[in-house]
C-alpha cells in the first residue's frame, strides 16, 4: 500500500488564512457600514448640455445656459408626487430667503399637479424645467428624488445632496453655496 506524502505544510494553513481574510472583511463591513446611496460621478465637472421646457405656464423652463451665468445656483430635482419633496419645501424657502437662487426640475409631473403642489407648499424656484423621462437625472448622475446640486457660476457641479434637505442642513448647504460663489 503506497502512501503518498501529504500536501506541503504551508498549504494546510491556507483554509485558515482564507477564513481569517473573510472574517476580517465582513467584520470591517459590519463595523463601518458603507453608505449605499449611489453618488454621482459628475462632481467637479461641468454640467452637460440640456434644455427643458417650462413645467408650468407661470415660470420659464431650464437650460444649461441659465445656470452658467457667473452666479451659483441650487438645482433641486423634485416632484409633486414625492412625499419627502413636500417635507423639504420649507428648507428651500429658507435658502431662497438667504438670497440663494433655487431652480427646479420637476420629474414626471403634470402642470396641474405642480400648481396644486406649489399652492400647498409655496414655490421657492425661479425657474422650473419639465422632465418626463428622468433625462436630467441620467445627465447629472442622480438616482432619486429629491436631490439637490450646487452649481457654480461657470456651470460646474460642486456638490450633490441626496435625499431631502433637513432643517439642520440648511446652514451646510448655504456654506456650500458660498464656497461655490468664490
Amino acid at each position: 500500500m503506497a502512501s503518498a506524502p501529504s500536501a506541503s505544510r504551508w498549504a494546510l494553513w491556507l483554509p485558515l488564512a482564507f477564513f481569517a481574510g473573510f472574517t476580517a472583511l465582513v467584520l470591517f463591513a459590519m463595523l463601518r457600514p458603507a453608505d449605499r446611496a449611489v453618488k454621482s460621478a459628475m462632481i467637479g465637472r461641468p454640467l452637460p448640455q440640456f434644455s427643458l421646457l417650462a413645467a408650468t405656464p407661470a415660470q420659464p423652463g431650464l437650460a444649461r445656459a441659465d445656470l452658467a451665468t457667473g452666479k451659483p445656483h441650487l438645482l433641486n430635482i423634485f416632484a409633486s408626487w414625492c412625499v419627502p419633496c413636500a417635507v423639504e419645501a420649507p428648507q428651500l424657502h429658507a435658502l431662497k430667503d438667504r438670497g440663494i437662487e433655487v431652480v427646479g426640475v420637476a420629474i414626471r409631473d403634470k402642470p396641474e399637479d405642480l400648481a396644486r403642489f406649489f399652492a400647498r407648499n409655496g414655490n421657492p424656484f425661479s425657474r422650473v424645467g419639465r422632465d418626463d423621462v428622468s433625462a436630467i437625472q441620467f445627465a447629472l448622475g442622480s438616482s432619486g428624488v429629491p436631490e439637490s446640486f450646487v452649481i457654480d457660476g461657470r456651470g460646474v457641479i460642486r456638490y450633490q445632496h441626496i435625499g431631502d434637505i433637513r432643517a439642520d442642513q440648511v446652514e451646510m448647504i448655504a456654506q456650500k453655496m458660498a464656497e461655490a460663489a468664490q
Binding site: M1, A2, S3, A4, P5, S6, A7, R9, L12, W13, P15, L16, F19, A20, T23, V26, L27, M30
Partner: peptide, 26 residues
Amino acid sequence: LALLAINIGAAFIIFALRAGTVSEGQ
C-alpha cells in the same frame, strides 16, 4: 459571525495542526 468564527476557526486550526500527519492515501 461569532459562532462561525469560533466553530470554523477552531476546526481549521485543528486541520492545519493535524492534517499533516494524515497521509493522502493511495
